[in-house]
Design a binder for these strands. Structure first.
Length: 426
RNA sequence: GUGGCCGUAGCUCAGUCGGUAGAGUCCAGGAUUGUGAUUCCUGUUGUCGCGGGUUCGAUCCCCGUCGGCCACCCCA
């Protein structure tokens, strides 16, 4: 036997047993987005490496050590997208969607980061990204948050997630604060752990959410972000909070919430859960007013967020809130035994499909004993088995057997079957 | 990238203080030659992750490697 080739580490197959759950989640999300008037956009999963370096930030972990970057046959440096926002901005700019317009967009698909896999974290993982462009006021920030809150409600996740909220201020305010924080920490460099020292160089704001107790103690007297906020950001944050309060969305102000990517400013938020171990962020985003300009476009305000599909699915499974009907993918299973059964089964299914296209019918193929066909009917999850034996075929009848309830099976004519099904299945 | 635990049948796992393996489940057939989910019987399934070392002999001990899980880091 030849040696088996296995999937790349951290890149998982989605097996058929799982896909109904994915379809359920994706379906719910798409329906909600349509209800808010958001349009789908699709981008390639490969981009020029420079796009991510310029947007995410040269010295972030993502760019420094997590990107799948390689040279193509022309010698160009290409990268599998580690996130969607940069591609989306690029595509919008290229497609002329940002010229004096507002856009509300969404996309979904795989992202790639070369990290060590663990629960809720994979090298190929799926996000649903939502981005809005051209709206500077915090009402749109609120809309995005309200939208996610509604989604959790619909999916039954509301009790398991909490909203963390913060504002980073304008890009200027953020930069000023950053300098102040760095100055403060530099004076106390000897008391910082290795991780924090590294962050001091790469992404100083991240020192704020260090898990090290000594570092946290040190931060007690550190400059506060809110003291550096510009008046505009402060007002907008207040407005956002008022809207959330009025809509009854609970949140926790977390001054230490700074987000990892360089392009964020003003509003940042994260939906987190304590049900998934270390990877508890299930949805996160914020405002990135400077990014479009940074990528060569006209200054354009923008806010967006991304949801981690695998994490949401893990959460749905952990909480056992997946509606049972989601897993039921077949309504009828057609069994046939004896002479002419194969033909009769296919023809009966065919007729049902023509007249009642909403029915999900699996026709037994491949022969086998009646017993094994019944087993397969049961395993398929179908509600009814339609049985075709020699006597039924001869008489133009079919036996309908209830696989789930206690109803007695009955043999009726195939002509009556349609009426019977509409009476009993809708 | 760092650390801990773990790789035995398709799946869940037992086991051998070193003498090349077993249970449940699943699948197929039968008891019931046309009735599943409960019962009973019969049967199939393995380079014991891969490579090397020690040994007369390694699934077991040692080293390496690949993979999985969890945590750190980072992030959705």
């Amino acid at each position: 036997m030849a040696k088996k080739i296995q999937a790349i580490r951290g890149m998982n197959d989605l097996l058929p047993a799982q896909s109904p759950v994915w379809q359920y989640l994706e379906g719910s999300v798409k329906e909600m987005l349509a209800g808010y008037g958001y349009d789908e956009i699709r981008m390639p999963i490969l981009e020029q490496t420079a796009l991510f370096k310029r947007s995410i930030g040269e010295v972030t972990d993502i760019v420094e050590k997590e990107m799948y970057t390689f040279e193509d046959r022309n010698g160009d440096s290409l990268t599998l997208r580690p996130e969607g926002t940069a591609s989306c901005v690029r595509a919008c700019e290229e497609g002329g969607l940002l010229y004096n317009q507002t856009q509300r967009l969404w996309y979904t698909g795989p992202m790639f980061r070369h990290e060590r896999p663990q629960k809720g974290r994979y090298r190929q993982f799926y996000q649903v990204g939502v981005e809005t462009f051209g709206i500077a006021t915090p009402d749109i920030d609120a809309e995005l948050i309200l939208m996610t809150a509604r989604l959790w409600q619909q999916l039954g996740l509301s009790d398991a997630v909490t909203l963390q909220l913060n504002t980073l201020g304008s890009n200027q305010a953020r930069a000023d604060y950053r300098d102040a924080l760095v100055a403060y920490l530099k004076e106390r460099e000897d008391k910082l752990d290795d991780d924090s020292l590294r962050r001091l160089e790469t992404n100083p704001l991240r020192v704020l959410d260090s898990k090290n107790p000594e570092t946290q103690a040190l931060l007690q007297d550190a400059p506060e972000l809110h003291d550096y906020l510009d008046a505009e950001s402060r007002e907008e944050f207040d407005t956002l909070r008022k809207i959330l309060d009025a809509a009854g969305v609970k949140y926790e102000i977390n001054q230490r919430l700074v987000r990892g990517l360089d392009y964020y400013c003003k509003t940042v938020f994260e939906w987190v859960t304590d049900k998934l171990g270390a990877q508890g962020t299930v949805c996160a985003g914020g405002r990135y007013d400077g990014l479009v300009e940074q990528l060569g476009g006209k200054p354009t305000p923008a806010v967006g967020f991304a949801m981690g599909v695998e994490r949401l699915i893990l959460l749905l499974e952990t909480l056992e809130v997946i509606p049972p009907e989601v897993m039921q993918t077949i309504d009828l299973y057609v069994c046939g035994v004896g002479a002419g059964a194969d033909l009769a089964g296919l023809l009966l299914s065919d007729r049902l499909r023509s007249e009642q296209p909403w029915l999900r019918i699996q026709t037994h193929c491949g022969g086998g004993s009646f017993k094994s066909q019944m087993k397969k009917a049961d395993k398929s999850g179908a509600v009814y088995a339609l049985l075709l034996g020699e006597s039924e075929i001869e008489a133009g009848q079919v036996t309908v057997k209830d696989l789930r309830g206690g109803t007695e099976q009955q043999t009726i004519s195939q002509d009556e079957l349609l009426g019977w099904l509409t009476d009993n299945m809708s």
